[in-house]
């Protein structure tokens, strides 16, 4: 699926990366905990989150996240937008809650980016 289709499905506004709407995406990862994203998200996935601080962009850069979908209509602060522009990471903003966002994308064939997680792996 192209990012432009994701934009339509979610009735989203492109905040950063209008030039990257032809990018292909197949998977998504939803979370509000960046350490959770760091633990499990695979490269090339979309990150669905309610967070808008610059660390979301940093986390996405570290993990090679394909695009960030900010949910609940939250407006990212200027420092977040600036960093995303600098690092060339697309941000889309939708008014849907995370549940609805995940549901709509799932319905259109987007899948989770981890098959199954072994939460106990290497944990004491």
């Amino acid at each position: 699926m192209k990012l432009s289709e994701v934009q339509q499905i979610l009735d989203a506004e492109v905040v950063v990366g209008q030039d990257q709407m032809q990018k292909d995406v197949y998977t998504a990862f939803g979370a509000d905990l960046m350490s959770d994203v760091l633990a499990f998200a695979r490269p090339g996935t979309m990150l669905l989150t309610g967070l808008t601080n610059p660390q979301v962009i940093r986390t996405s850069e570290i993990l090679d996240i394909a695009a960030i979908i900010i949910v609940r209509g939250k407006v990212p602060p200027p420092e977040t937008i600036k960093l995303a522009e600098e690092l060339n990471i697309p941000i889309l903003r939708t008014r849907y809650i995370l549940f609805e966002t995940a549901g709509r994308l799932y319905r259109w064939g987007i899948v989770g980016c981890v098959d199954k997680v072994d939460a106990g792996k290497k944990r004491g």
């Binding site: 990862f29 939803g30 979370a31 499990f40 995370l98 549940f99 995940a102 549901g103 319905r107 980016c113």
Partner: peptide, 17 residues
């Protein structure tokens, strides 16, 4: 749920729809 958040939400959304 043994599934990640995205998939869990997606499936429940489908059921409700």
């Amino acid at each position: 749920s043994e599934l990640p958040c995205f998939e869990t939400a997606g499936r429940i959304y489908q059921l409700i729809a």
